[in-house]
């Protein structure tokens, strides 16, 4: 036991930056941060090979709290920024971390395109079903009829189903975790990182300040691990589990092996033997000019 604690201490020392989290006391995001740091320790990713990219929101402050070559970008655009990091340097372990508003509302247009491309990166969505940073507005995963500052008479839109969307968009690894179950979440992050391709984990991470419906107790009462007999290569079964409403399944819904986007891009470059020295590039450019003469 003491060995495990020692490991966690080491990981904290190695990965935690000296910027202190700005989250409210009791925020689910602390559990995700702890799990993330434990997972990094287990994966032994050196900080100079680590790149965490985020957009805007409470959870998007994440990259400030972990050492790495990180980017804290603009609202909703973390995924395409991370795609750029990955294609320019495929050696980096790229993580995108953000919330439900950042991912499914303003940034919703990017998920399908990154999912179908399948870059080798991990996207962790900290879902609290509310806008926390702006103090309590309705989000795309807020429940129907939920009262918020912008839905004082109750939300009119049913929540979207993130797992179904991700499966439909073609994410090659789809999982769900709960911020309070750090043991399971750490393992999910480890598995997602080891998966070669676009791995997404929806983490239910309750907001004790602004969301009075999806509370820790609400989640605890409903959360169930996906039965071990589930075959995660069976997409139809994954959809079935995702459709269950009265329980919140956690674990790996789906995984498949597919070529990665950066690998496919590299293949085009290799086809032309594009990684040549500067002198050869000059000669090649002269030849290209000839085609226009």
């Amino acid at each position: 036991m003491s060995e495990a604690i020692e490991k966690i201490k080491q990981a904290k020392l190695e990965y935690k930056s000296d910027v202190k989290p700005t989250w409210c006391p009791g925020c689910g995001d602390y559990g995700v941060l702890a799990s993330f740091i434990k997972a990094l320790g287990e994966l032994k990713i050196p900080t100079h090979k680590l790149s965490i990219v985020s957009g805007i929101g409470c959870s998007s402050r994440f990259p400030h709290f972990v050492k790495g070559y990180n980017l804290h970008t603009v609202h909703g655009r973390a995924l395409p920024v991370a795609l750029g990091v990955k294609i320019a340097n495929p050696e980096l372990e790229v993580f995108v971390i953000g919330g439900d508003g950042d991912g499914f509302a303003i940034g919703g247009g990017h998920i399908p395109h990154v999912a179908r491309r399948n870059p080798d990166m991990v996207y962790i969505i900290l879902d609290n079903a509310i806008y926390g940073l702006t103090k309590g507005q309705v989000s795309p995963t807020s429940t129907l009829t939920m009262t918020t500052t912008t839905t004082p008479y109750g939300a009119l839109e049913p929540p979207l189903n993130p797992i179904m969307l991700l499966l439909a968009y073609g994410a090659s690894f789809v999982a769900r975790g709960f911020s309070s179950n750090t043991k399971q979440l750490t393992q999910l992050i480890v598995e997602a990182t080891r998966h070669r391709g676009f791995a997404v984990i929806q983490v239910i991470s309750p907001c004790p300040t602004f969301n009075m419906e999806i509370t820790f107790d609400f989640v605890r009462e409903r959360v169930v691990e996906i039965p071990p007999k589930h075959d995660p290569t069976n997409k139809l079964k994954a959809f079935e589990l995702a459709m269950v409403q009265d329980k919140i399944y956690t674990g790996i819904f789906y995984r498949e092996e597919r070529p990665t986007f950066e690998g496919n891009l590299d293949k085009i470059v290799s086809k032309f033997d594009g990684n040549i020295d500067e002198l050869s590039k000059k000669e090649r450019l002269e030849k290209l000019f000839e085609q226009f003469a």
């Binding site: 790149s51 990219v53 070559y69 980017l71 970008t73 655009r77 995924l79 395409p80 920024v81 991370a82 795609l83 750029g84 990091v85 990955k86 294609i87 320019a88 340097n89 980096l92 247009g109 990017h110 395109h113």
Partner: peptide
């Protein structure tokens, strides 16, 4: 996203 991907790639050194 076009500029976003460029920004990410630039950060990574391209």
């Amino acid at each position: 996203s076009a500029l976003a991907t460029c920004v990410g790639a630039s950060y990574a050194g391209a």
